[in-house]
Protein backbone atom coordinates (compact mmCIF):
# COMPACT_ATOMS: atom_id res chain seq x y z
CA UNK A 1 0.00 0.00 0.00
CA UNK A 2 1.22 3.43 -0.81
CA UNK A 3 0.04 6.66 0.65
CA UNK A 4 -3.46 7.45 1.78
CA UNK A 5 -3.52 10.79 0.03
CA UNK A 6 -2.89 9.13 -3.31
CA UNK A 7 -5.92 6.95 -2.71
CA UNK A 8 -7.94 9.97 -1.69
CA UNK A 9 -7.06 12.03 -4.75
CA UNK A 10 -7.67 9.00 -6.96
CA UNK A 11 -11.15 8.54 -5.57
CA UNK A 12 -12.00 12.23 -5.77
CA UNK A 13 -10.82 12.58 -9.36
CA UNK A 14 -12.50 9.31 -10.32
CA UNK A 15 -15.78 10.62 -8.96
CA UNK A 16 -15.25 13.92 -10.76
CA UNK A 17 -14.54 12.05 -13.98
CA UNK A 18 -17.74 10.08 -13.59
CA UNK A 19 -19.67 13.29 -12.98
CA UNK A 20 -18.19 14.92 -16.09
CA UNK A 21 -19.02 11.86 -18.20
CA UNK A 22 -22.61 11.71 -16.96
CA UNK A 23 -23.14 15.43 -17.53
CA UNK A 24 -21.59 15.09 -20.98
CA UNK A 25 -24.03 12.31 -21.85
CA UNK A 26 -26.83 14.84 -21.41
CA UNK A 27 -25.29 17.02 -24.11
CA UNK A 28 -25.62 16.01 -27.76
CA UNK A 29 -22.69 13.77 -28.71
CA UNK A 30 -22.97 14.53 -32.41
CA UNK A 31 -24.36 17.68 -33.96
CA UNK A 32 -25.15 18.61 -37.56
CA UNK A 33 -21.77 17.41 -38.73
CA UNK A 34 -18.98 16.08 -36.64
CA UNK A 35 -18.88 16.00 -32.87
CA UNK A 36 -21.38 17.90 -30.75
CA UNK A 37 -20.91 19.77 -27.50
CA UNK A 38 -20.92 16.52 -25.51
CA UNK A 39 -18.13 14.88 -27.48
CA UNK A 40 -15.10 16.44 -25.85
CA UNK A 41 -16.37 16.46 -22.24
CA UNK A 42 -17.35 12.79 -22.52
CA UNK A 43 -13.86 11.74 -23.52
CA UNK A 44 -12.32 14.00 -20.91
CA UNK A 45 -14.57 12.39 -18.30
CA UNK A 46 -13.65 8.88 -19.43
CA UNK A 47 -9.96 9.81 -19.44
CA UNK A 48 -10.21 11.22 -15.92
CA UNK A 49 -11.95 8.10 -14.62
CA UNK A 50 -9.50 5.67 -16.22
CA UNK A 51 -6.41 7.58 -15.12
CA UNK A 52 -7.78 7.87 -11.56
CA UNK A 53 -8.23 4.09 -11.48
CA UNK A 54 -4.68 3.73 -12.73
CA UNK A 55 -3.51 6.08 -9.97
CA UNK A 56 -5.32 4.03 -7.32
CA UNK A 57 -3.96 0.77 -8.71
CA UNK A 58 -0.41 2.04 -8.98
CA UNK A 59 -0.68 3.21 -5.41
CA UNK A 60 -2.06 -0.15 -4.36
CA UNK A 61 0.89 -2.02 -5.78
CA UNK A 62 3.47 0.43 -4.52
CA UNK A 63 4.99 -1.66 -1.74
CA UNK A 64 6.58 0.96 0.43
CA UNK A 65 5.10 4.29 1.34
CA UNK A 66 6.93 7.09 -0.37
CA UNK A 67 9.36 8.10 2.33
CA UNK A 68 10.89 11.04 0.56
CA UNK A 69 7.86 13.14 1.48
CA UNK A 70 7.67 14.21 5.07
CA UNK A 71 4.29 13.94 6.72
CA UNK A 72 2.40 17.16 6.78
CA UNK A 73 1.30 18.10 10.26
CA UNK A 74 -2.37 18.87 10.67
CA UNK A 75 -1.47 22.11 12.37
CA UNK A 76 0.29 23.58 9.36
CA UNK A 77 -2.52 22.66 6.99
CA UNK A 78 -4.92 24.15 9.50
CA UNK A 79 -2.97 27.41 9.46
CA UNK A 80 -3.13 27.58 5.68
CA UNK A 81 -6.87 26.95 5.76
CA UNK A 82 -7.38 29.67 8.36
CA UNK A 83 -5.49 32.06 6.09
CA UNK A 84 -7.65 31.01 3.17
CA UNK A 85 -10.83 31.53 5.17
CA UNK A 86 -9.60 35.03 5.87
CA UNK A 87 -9.25 35.62 2.13
CA UNK A 88 -12.74 34.27 1.47
CA UNK A 89 -14.15 36.45 4.20
CA UNK A 90 -12.43 39.49 2.73
CA UNK A 91 -13.81 38.65 -0.72
CA UNK A 92 -17.27 38.48 0.80
CA UNK A 93 -16.79 41.91 2.32
CA UNK A 94 -15.62 43.49 -0.95
CA UNK A 95 -19.01 44.56 -2.18
CA UNK A 96 -20.04 46.01 1.18
CA UNK A 97 -16.85 47.61 2.43
CA UNK A 98 -14.92 48.24 -0.77
CA UNK A 99 -11.43 47.09 -1.65
CA UNK A 100 -9.39 49.29 0.69
CA UNK A 101 -11.09 48.39 3.94
CA UNK A 102 -11.41 44.70 3.04
CA UNK A 103 -7.69 44.50 2.30
CA UNK A 104 -6.90 46.28 5.57
CA UNK A 105 -9.09 43.85 7.52
CA UNK A 106 -7.53 40.84 5.76
CA UNK A 107 -4.08 42.17 6.60
CA UNK A 108 -5.03 42.69 10.25
CA UNK A 109 -6.44 39.18 10.40
CA UNK A 110 -3.37 37.56 8.85
CA UNK A 111 -0.89 39.47 10.99
CA UNK A 112 -2.76 39.21 14.29
CA UNK A 113 -4.15 35.68 14.04
CA UNK A 114 -1.58 33.84 11.98
CA UNK A 115 1.60 35.75 12.73
CA UNK A 116 0.72 36.98 16.24
CA UNK A 117 2.51 40.26 15.84
CA UNK A 118 1.76 43.28 18.03
CA UNK A 119 -1.35 45.24 17.24
CA UNK A 120 0.43 48.42 16.26
CA UNK A 121 2.52 46.61 13.64
CA UNK A 122 -0.61 45.04 12.21
CA UNK A 123 -2.47 48.34 12.18
CA UNK A 124 0.28 50.28 10.49
CA UNK A 125 0.84 47.59 7.84
CA UNK A 126 -2.89 47.33 7.18
CA UNK A 127 -3.32 51.06 6.75
CA UNK A 128 -0.13 51.36 4.76
CA UNK A 129 -1.09 48.59 2.35
CA UNK A 130 -4.62 49.88 1.85
CA UNK A 131 -3.32 53.38 1.15
CA UNK A 132 -0.55 52.11 -1.10
CA UNK A 133 -2.99 50.09 -3.20
CA UNK A 134 -5.34 53.04 -3.44
CA UNK A 135 -2.59 55.40 -4.55
CA UNK A 136 -1.04 53.02 -7.09
CA UNK A 137 -4.06 51.32 -8.60
CA UNK A 138 -6.89 53.81 -8.21
CA UNK A 139 -5.23 57.22 -8.29
CA UNK A 140 -2.22 56.61 -10.52
CA UNK A 141 -3.48 53.85 -12.81
CA UNK A 142 -7.16 54.56 -12.72
CA UNK A 143 -8.44 51.04 -12.18
CA UNK A 144 -11.93 50.89 -10.78
CA UNK A 145 -11.94 48.64 -7.72
CA UNK A 146 -15.00 47.66 -5.69
CA UNK A 147 -15.79 50.61 -3.46
CA UNK A 148 -17.72 50.94 -0.21
CA UNK A 149 -20.52 53.39 0.54
CA UNK A 150 -17.92 56.09 1.22
CA UNK A 151 -16.48 55.86 -2.26
CA UNK A 152 -13.22 53.95 -1.87
Amino acid sequence: MGEKKELLSGICLGAFGAYVSIEALNLPYVSEFGPGPGFFPLWIGIGLTLLSLLLILANFFALTPDESRERQSRLSIGRALVGWSGLILAIGLLQWLGFGLSLALLTLFLILVLERRPLWTALSVAIGLALGFHVIFVLALGLSLPSGPWGF
Binding site: G142, L143, S144
Partner: peptide
Protein backbone atom coordinates in the same frame (compact mmCIF):
# COMPACT_ATOMS: atom_id res chain seq x y z
CA UNK B 1 -11.17 51.94 -14.68
CA UNK B 2 -11.51 53.88 -17.91
CA UNK B 3 -12.55 57.05 -16.15
CA UNK B 4 -9.37 57.72 -14.30
CA UNK B 5 -7.24 56.34 -17.08
CA UNK B 6 -8.55 59.11 -19.21
CA UNK B 7 -7.97 61.66 -16.49
CA UNK B 8 -4.40 60.53 -16.00
CA UNK B 9 -3.67 60.58 -19.67
Amino acid sequence: MKRSWYCLL
